[in-house]
C-alpha cells in the first residue's frame, strides 16, 4: 500500500507540469490561436523561477517570476502573430527555440546551485487522514493550484459569458468581430494566460520536481502538453486525466523496470503521441464527433476588415 501511494505521488509530480502547460494551451487554442512555443515558455519559466528563488530565497517569488516570464514570452508571441500577423506555426516554433537558447544563456551561472526546498503545504485536519491524507492533502501549493486551475478553466470556458465569447472567437473570428467582440484583445488575454500557465509548469519542474536548474530540463514536456490538448479534445477535465495518464505511463515504466519486468522505454515514450494520433483519427473519422474537434479558426490569422 505504501508503495502504491509512493507511486501515485510520483505520478502527480510527473503530471503537474503537464497539467499547467496543457490547460494554458487549451485556452489559447479555444481562442483560435495555435502557440507551438509551449516548450520555450516552460523552460524560460523554469529558469526564471529558479533564478528568482535563488536571488530572494523565496519559492513564492520564484513562482511569480515564472508566471511573469511566461507572460512576457507569450506577449512576444502575441505581438508577432496578433498585431504583426506573422505565421503562428513558424512563430511558435521559433519561440520554442528562442526560449531554449535564452534559458541556457541566462542559466549559465545557475547550474550547480541548489534552491531552497519547496515547502509542503499540509492541509490542517486532512493531511493526517490515512492513505488519502498523505496522497492528496500533504502536497505542495502548486499541486493544489493546478487542480484549482483545471476547475476554474472548465467552469470559465463553458459557464461564463467571457468563456462563451472566447470560444465564439475561436470558432469564427469574422462573425464574432461583426457583432462587435474585440477579437484581438480576447486573443491577447488568452495567449498571455497560456504563457503564465506554461511558466508555472516550468516552475514546477525547476523548483519542485528536480529541484534545480539544468539546461534543456523540460526535455520535450512542452510538446507532450501540446499533444495532450488534442488528446483531451480541448477539454480541461480531460486534459487533467490525460496528464495523469501520460505522467503515469512515464513513472510506471520506471517501477516495472525496478521490479525486473521490462517494457521498452522507447515504446512507452511513443505512447502519448501514438494515442494522440489515434484520437485525432477517431475524431475526424466520425462526423458526430466533429463537435469535439479543433476550434474552426485555429491557427488562422485575423484581419480586422474596416
Amino acid at each position: 500500500m505504501d508503495l502504491a501511494i509512493d507511486i501515485l505521488i510520483g505520478v502527480m509530480a510527473a503530471a503537474t507540469p503537464l497539467v499547467f502547460a496543457a490547460i494554458g494551451e487549451i485556452v489559447v487554442e479555444k481562442a483560435g490561436v495555435l502557440n507551438l512555443g509551449v516548450e520555450g515558455m516552460m523552460i524560460v519559466g523554469a529558469i526564471a523561477a529558479f533564478a528568482a528563488s535563488i536571488a530572494t530565497g523565496s519559492p513564492t517569488i520564484g513562482v511569480l517570476a515564472a508566471l511573469m516570464a511566461g507572460v512576457l514570452m507569450a506577449l512576444l508571441f502575441g505581438i508577432l502573430t496578433l498585431t504583426l500577423l506573422s505565421n503562428q506555426v513558424a512563430t511558435g516554433l521559433a519561440l520554442t527555440m528562442f526560449g531554449l537558447g535564452l534559458s541556457s544563456l541566462v542559466g549559465q551561472s545557475y547550474t550547480g546551485m541548489a534552491a531552497a526546498p519547496f515547502p509542503r503545504l499540509d492541509i490542517a485536519g486532512l493531511s493526517t487522514l490515512p492513505v488519502i491524507g498523505r496522497l492528496l492533502f500533504a502536497r505542495d501549493a502548486l499541486f493544489y493550484l493546478s487542480l484549482a486551475l483545471v476547475a476554474a478553466t472548465a467552469y470559465g470556458l463553458t459557464r461564463t459569458r467571457a468563456g462563451l465569447v472566447l470560444r465564439a472567437i475561436g470558432e469564427n473570428h469574422d462573425a464574432a468581430h461583426a457583432i462587435g467582440y474585440r477579437v484581438v484583445a480576447y486573443r491577447y488575454l488568452a495567449v498571455l494566460f497560456g504563457g503564465a500557465c506554461a511558466g508555472l509548469g516550468g516552475a514546477y519542474l525547476s523548483l519542485v520536481q528536480t529541484p534545480f536548474w539544468v539546461e534543456k530540463m523540460t526535455a520535450g514536456r512542452g510538446w507532450i502538453a501540446l499533444a495532450l490538448v488534442v488528446f483531451a479534445a480541448w477539454r480541461p477535465e480531460r486534459a487533467l486525466a490525460g496528464a495523469y495518464l501520460f505522467g503515469g505511463i512515464s513513472v510506471l515504466q520506471l517501477h516495472t523496470q525496478a521490479v525486473g519486468f521490462r517494457v521498452d522505454a522507447q515504446i512507452l515514450a511513443m505512447i502519448p503521441y501514438l494515442v494522440t494520433i489515434l484520437v485525432l483519427v477517431l475524431m475526424s473519422a466520425d462526423r458526430t464527433r466533429l463537435k469535439f474537434s479543433a476550434p474552426a479558426c485555429l491557427g488562422k490569422p485575423f484581419f480586422a476588415a474596416a
Binding site: 508503495l3 509512493d6 507511486i7 510520483g10 509530480a13 510527473a14 519542474l205 520536481q209 528536480t210 534545480f212 539544468v214 534543456k216 530540463m217 523540460t218 526535455a219 514536456r221 512515464s250 513513472v251 520506471l254 517501477h255 523496470q257 525496478a258 521490479v259
Partner: peptide, 17 residues
Amino acid sequence: WFDPGKEADAAKALADQ
C-alpha cells in the same frame, strides 16, 4: 544520458522500492 526530470523520477521509483 541527460534528462534531469526522468532521472529524478527514476531515483524516486528506486527509493520507493
